[in-house]
């Protein structure tokens, strides 16, 4: 079974669901629809590049800051926390600086990815905190960002663990490296599947609940 194809299928399905529900989904969710669409394109390009030239690292140098900016924009739209919006130029500049001077393009931008994953964890936890503060009669399942944040939390923590132990396992145990790879795949599946759920459920946002 080609795990990568499953991953691409989930991305394509999330994009289709998002496009189909475009008129209904919240503005913050539209940022994530754009993110899924870009991710799908990037992953296809990365796949082709890997097959043709053997390396696709350049794609991730460009994609990671974009992903970071879009996630920040989505969370800003959802929570109305202005700091998230002001962080967007910062993460783009940081991505550029990392790709030019700290980990230039032939090397993998692991530092920036680590930073991004910690940022995602922070965003997800901030959203959870906000969700606990609001007084609402709405069901938890009807908050799309609950699904996205849960998926993001699982994805980010798993990826940090994976990144931190990757080299160690490659050197010491190939079998464990394969398991780790599957864990990585599944965390990606969970992450992007959470987008599908988020596009399908009732579109409650916490900023709406503050207004009520």
């Amino acid at each position: 079974m080609n795990w990568y194809l499953v991953y691409l299928f989930i991305l394509a399905l999330a994009t289709m669901v998002g496009v189909f529900r475009f008129k209904v989904i919240s503005t913050s969710n539209k940022c994530f629809l754009l993110l899924v669409l870009i991710t799908l394109i990037v992953e296809i390009i990365a796949w082709q590049l890997a097959m043709k030239s053997g390396t696709n690292i350049i794609v991730y140098h460009i994609f990671t800051p974009m992903q970071c900016a879009l996630v920040l924009l989505g969370y800003y739209k959802e929570t109305k926390i202005k700091v998230f919006f002001y962080l967007i130029p910062f993460v783009i500049v940081l991505g550029t600086v990392t790709s030019i001077w700290i980990q230039p393009i032939p090397s993998f931008n692991s530092y920036y990815i680590c930073f991004e994953l910690f940022l995602f964890i922070f965003l997800a936890l901030t959203f959870f905190k906000r969700l606990l503060i609001i007084e609402t009669n709405q069901k938890l399942k009807n908050f799309p960002f609950f699904w996205i944040s849960s998926g993001m939390l699982i994805f980010s923590i798993t990826s940090i663990f994976d990144l931190g132990t990757h080299n160690f396992f490659i050197d010491s145990n190939t079998y464990l490296d394969i398991i780790l790879r599957y864990i990585r795949y599944f965390s990606n599946y969970i992450y992007y599947s959470s987008f599908i759920v988020a596009f399908l459920v009732k579109q409650n946002t916490i900023s709406d609940q503050y207004g009520k």
Partner: peptide, 17 residues
Amino acid sequence: YEILLTFIVGIIIFGIL
């Protein structure tokens, strides 16, 4: 031992999550 420990830690982290 380190591999086992790392995996246990990983499982614990996932469990906590």
